[in-house]
């Protein structure tokens, strides 16, 4: 069963219902082998859309070695705790080189409790349309991309941080996804470019 509202997502297979997908997997065990996907830290394929059915999905793109995204760690953890089970929260590490062990260490260092994914082939980067770390993407429960971009406006540019943020786009976007409010307009984040040479 195809859902037309998912048409912006590149992998048609992900548009299948869970039961259909299970059937496909059973009948086509080599399906994942040639497919680039995000990965759990244990190396198995990951699809956060399928792992949080019926809930808004929040992807938070970070790097282990990006000082601006690291500075957001307490806020990211706070927001994910604040909304708890109401939405699915995932850290996404889009680096091609960060190993699972390095990511686990990073999570320990910065007190992250939310689950993490690797996205070395930028599958989720493309779906979320993000450019830099830290940026967030908020999807509705039916997987519609509602917002992508900065978490808040703490940084205006490299080296130009406000004493405190005055707008809170990620929080507004989650509220929009949960309660059907109007989402904020997409705003690019300030931080480390995910793709460095185009």
């Amino acid at each position: 069963m195809l859902h037309s509202s998912f048409s912006s997502r590149p992998r048609a297979t992900l548009l299948l219902s869970a039961s259909t997908m299970l059937l496909l997997l059973l009948t086509s065990p080599l399906f994942w082998a040639g497919q680039k996907t995000a990965l759990h830290l244990d190396g198995t394929p990951a699809d956060p859309f399928l792992e949080n059915p019926g809930k808004p999905l929040v992807l938070l793109f970070v790097r282990t070695d990006c000082p601006i995204s690291n500075r957001y760690a307490p806020l990211i953890q706070h927001i994910s705790t604040q909304y708890g089970e109401k939405a699915g929260f995932w850290l996404v590490y889009p680096s091609e080189t960060a190993t699972a062990e390095r990511i686990r260490q990073h999570q320990r260092d910065y007190g992250y409790k939310l689950p993490a994914l690797r996205d070395p082939w930028h599958v989720l980067v493309a779906q979320a349309q993000v450019q830099a770390t830290p940026e967030a993407a908020v999807f509705t429960a039916d997987h519609h991309l509602l917002y992508h971009g900065r978490i808040d406006n703490l940084y205006r540019d490299f080296g130009h941080a406000r004493p405190a943020a005055t707008t809170h786009e990620l929080d507004e976007a989650i509220q929009a996804a949960l309660f059907g409010k109007a989402p904020p307009s997409n705003q690019p984040g300030v931080g480390c470019f995910i793709t460095n040479v185009q």
Partner: peptide, 19 residues
């Protein structure tokens, strides 16, 4: 440098770096 090429271009063009 290649891994940070766009950032280097950005921060030097604004003279944020070197400070």
């Amino acid at each position: 440098a290649r891994a940070r090429a766009r950032e280097i271009a950005r921060v030097t063009s604004t003279r944020f770096m070197p400070p």
